[in-house]
């Protein structure tokens, strides 16, 4: 199969690869997917006191589309509030990367990763879970 130029660009030059300390209060970590299914994404956000995502890091086990989807969302969430980041839809990711139908699940996983990272941050900081939805 062939990949779009954007997927190849993110695959070859992934943005924001790395990790924050999980225990930091300002950090939310989302770990989604399963090794047995061939995709695992770890997305981390660093949130300011004002509730703005200052930085994001990711690591992904998966195909090129999975790596590109997670790389892309680290760029997208930066500078957004938690509520804004929670509104990122998998369809936007899939559209931006021109993912073929068999790769849509990669974008779904990336959306799940954002939500999981936000939920983790809120849980750690005792924030209301429902307000993000």
């Amino acid at each position: 199969m062939s990949y779009s130029e954007k997927v190849i660009d993110h695959y070859e030059h992934p943005r924001n690869v790395g990790a924050f300390k999980k225990d930091d209060d300002g950090v939310g970590t989302g770990l989604v997917g399963a090794p047995a299914c061939g995709d695992v994404m770890k997305l981390q956000i660093k949130v300011s006191a004002e509730g703005v995502i200052e930085d994001a890091k990711f690591k992904t086990f998966g195909c090129g589309s999975a790596i590109a989807s997670s790389s892309l969302v680290t760029e997208w969430v930066k500078g957004k509030t938690l509520d804004e980041a929670a509104k990122i839809k998998n369809t936007d990711i899939a559209h931006h990367l021109a993912l073929p139908p068999v790769k849509i699940h990669c974008s779904v996983l990336a959306e799940d990763a954002i939500k999981a990272a936000i939920a983790d941050y809120k849980k750690k900081n005792g924030l209301d879970e429902t307000s993000a939805a």
């Binding site: 992934p14 690869v17 990790a19 770990l31 997917g33 399963a34 090794p35 047995a36 695992v40 994404m41 770890k42 690591k59 992904t60 086990f61 790596i67």
Partner: peptide, 19 residues
């Protein structure tokens, strides 16, 4: 780039995680 490799290096058994 792999979160699983990172866990492996940290000594976490990926089978112990409930995926």
């Amino acid at each position: 780039l792999s979160p699983l490799w990172e866990m492996h290096l940290e000594g976490i058994d990926i089978k112990s995680i409930k995926w």
